[in-house]
Write a protein that binds this DNA or RNA. Sequence first.
DNA 1: ACTTTTGTCTATCTAATTGGTAGAGATAAT
DNA 2: ATTATCTCTACCAATTAGATAGACAAAAGT
Lengths: 140, 140
Amino acid sequence: MLSKKAKYALKALLFLGKNEDRGVLLISEISAEEGIPKKFLEQILLELKKQGILQSKRGKDGGYLLGKNPEDINIGAVLRIIDGPLAPIPCVSKLAYQRCDECIDENTCEIRNLFWQVREETVKILDNTSLKQLMQKNIL
Amino acid sequence: MLSKKAKYALKALLFLGKNEDRGVLLISEISAEEGIPKKFLEQILLELKKQGILQSKRGKDGGYLLGKNPEDINIGAVLRIIDGPLAPIPCVSKLAYQRCDECIDENTCEIRNLFWQVREETVKILDNTSLKQLMQKNIL
DNA sequence: ACTTTTGTCTATCTAATTGGTAGAGATAAT
DNA sequence: ATTATCTCTACCAATTAGATAGACAAAAGT
């Protein structure tokens, strides 16, 4: 399940992407325009900044802007920053793999083999979508 | 994310499926064999029974067994019973659709259009897998 | 009838997570 | 200095996850 936090993150990124020409944008503007609680959004943007997705300018006339080109911002990566692993179960995660402690043999675990497929398809979509592509998904 | 409850449900179903010839099985046997807390498993099995996935026999010599043939038990349906909707966000759910209250136009919502795809792929896998097929996923 | 063995039901509990708020601090422009 | 802004840390309430407890109901064997 996509958390509200992640949804807010994507909304903020989309807003920043669409207004890239305007330079830095205020947290309060993004918050107001996208209907995201301001203090909550602050935390989200800060996290994305720390991970290099965004850049910021402090003090008067400060604000946020994208940290790289929209085509270089990967949606899968963003979701991992905010919500953690994309895999539906840790034993099929590539970047955050964790063995199930009860598992005797992973290779014959039916549940693992099923969710492996799910993970593959999910990751295929999300890791192959850039912010730029996401922005274009509003065109029908 | 797959909950432990759902994982337990699938393990129990797999166990029941593999031992179908033995008639009813005790909750305590399933619990012990699969390492699932017994009282927690009781709740899970009861829920699956109420939804017609399992059958039970009360009293002495009682126990649980599959409610239909393994090929007729759908994994997507089981997961919906235990964990709720498969969709990563309510506005792309077919069976548990819920509009986002802030959404102006769903058709042009980039986030929705992205997760629509994710939902499609997930559902395609899970709704097209029967318990029988799942049981066979241990063969490499 | 009684006893034993089972599933059934409802209530409760704890810890973690989610979604959000508060407020002091740092920094930059004027 | 003052003001506008991001930064950081702490906190909090509600919900959910993951269980546990115990009384109750039914069926079998005696």
